[in-house]
Amino acid sequence: MSQIAAGGGPSPGAPATVAVGGRVRDISWWRTPTARRYLFGYTLLAPAVLYVALLVGIPFVFSLYLAVSDASVGVPVARFVGLENFKAALENSAFWTAVRNTVVFTLGAGIMKGLLGTALAFLLIQPFKGRRVVRALVVIPFTLPIAVSVLGWKWMFDSQFSVINWALSRLNLIGAYGSPEWPVWLGQPALALFSVMFVNVWRGFPFSAIVLMAGMTSIPPEIIDAGKVDGATFLQRFRKIIVPMIAPILFIGSAFDTVFTLSDLSIVYLLTNGGPDGATEILPTLAYNTGIKAGALGRGAAISLSLFPLLLPLMILLLRTLRRRQY
């Protein structure tokens, strides 16, 4: 869908230019300011639209084609199989586990990032000494290349040499190594899902905080002061004034964050590869293992596109609402 819109980019401008020839003599429409604006506008748009259309649009059409074919990695000519691949995915219990985990992962991590980000942003907009240093330190998780910081976490979650466990154990919060009270972060199903989510949160919360800081600094202090004068408690002020004011930025922030989280393969792939027994399997890992590693491209494409029909209308709705609000 998106590609149709994007790919059709230049064409809405085209009728205007095509029409030029026909109308030149009678009204010289192309000389009107509107026509010139359109021409100028679509010229400015063209590079971005073409870039995206060529490098995402056309490949996307290709992956749609894969999803309805029986293509595999070594067979270039594939047969059309209709919705067979989607049907196969729906019949696969691993698929449903992956859907469940993907939803839990995305929502859970999103909520945690929102809460932590809000609290941190609130602290960081206060004036205090050393603010710059603190800000510099808290953004580091966001600036490290994800593939590498995940490996750092892998080391911290190690079943034997986990520094987290070492500390907890010395504090007597958990048992000694080898006892059942020694948490195996990536080995116990619920804990493993939590751990991969946690890494996503760790990486993402500084960014949430920055986005929310931006939102909070945009609230004129008079409004908050007015609230104070009215005797509103902090929580009331927060709910009635701050939240509605920063809602748009919160929405767009979480929209971006959600699509990035949904497509992020690396955390799960490098930490657990979906194990144990599918406890952390998410759609990207399942699609990658099925489509690329096992070579069943068609089914892999179907799995990776399975959320598309749900996400597309949701995102369109979200973005439209956002844009409307802005005027």
Binding site: S159, Q160, W182, V184
Partner: peptide, 14 residues
């Protein structure tokens, strides 16, 4: 021990 549920290819080496 339950460690084995989290292991990767390198864990048994260690």
């Amino acid at each position: 021990t339950p460690e084995v549920f989290s292991w990767d290819d390198a864990s048994d080496n260690r």
